[in-house]
């Protein structure tokens, strides 16, 4: 049976595409959500932060990661008409997706491009993953979500 991995980010368009392919091909679908832990390195050059200021920030960012995880997983489960697994990993997003792809011997990766997960908003996730894997990849070109709208959560187009 064909194995598909969906890299979760807030895009529902990508979720739907993955579900559609899995239905068409009668493949098994696994969704992977990676909690980004690179915030620490991203702000590491800043040496002026005082006392608990950076720790507060990292905690705040981590809480956002948790909320985002719950939201994405719930949205995906709601949309998926059949039984599917939602996995969760922590680390650098591109590394974790690559690791899961190799360990789980998947045949196809479905992900948004640009990928909007944690700090990947400033990185080229797909470009990084493509370098290290051998399976097929389906990139869903998504419109960048309304990051700067007054009230929109950074998500769900």
């Amino acid at each position: 049976m064909m194995k598909i991995l969906l890299a979760l980010d807030p895009s529902t368009q990508t979720m739907d595409e993955a579900i559609k392919i899995a239905t068409d091909k009668q493949a098994s679908l696994t969704a992977l959500f990676v909690l980004d832990t690179t915030w620490n390195d991203y702000t590491a050059h800043d040496w002026l932060s005082g006392s608990g200021s950076r720790a507060d920030f990292l905690e705040y960012a981590r809480d956002h990661e948790f909320v985002s995880e719950t939201e994405c997983a719930a949205t995906f489960r709601k949309r998926c008409p059949f039984q599917c697994e939602v996995k969760s990993a922590t680390g650098r997003v591109s590394d974790e997706i690559t690791r899961e792809l190799i360990e789980g011997e998947y045949d196809l990766l479905v992900m948004s491009h640009p990928f909007r997960r944690g700090l990947e908003v400033v990185r080229d996730t797909a470009g990084k993953i493509l370098k290290d894997i051998t399976c097929s990849v389906y990139l869903v070109q998504t419109n960048p979500p309304a990051l700067f709208s007054r009230n929109g959560s950074a998500s769900l187009p």
């Binding site: 800043d46 932060s49 507060d56 920030f57 944690g118 908003v121 950074a154």
Partner: peptide, 22 residues
């Protein structure tokens, strides 16, 4: 102070981390 001030203010004003990254 640039980044250190951004880091210090973010939780207080509930800014979205993805925006702060930019």
């Amino acid at each position: 102070c640039g980044v250190s001030a951004a880091v210090a203010t973010t939780p207080a004003v509930r800014a979205k981390p993805a925006d702060v990254a930019l």
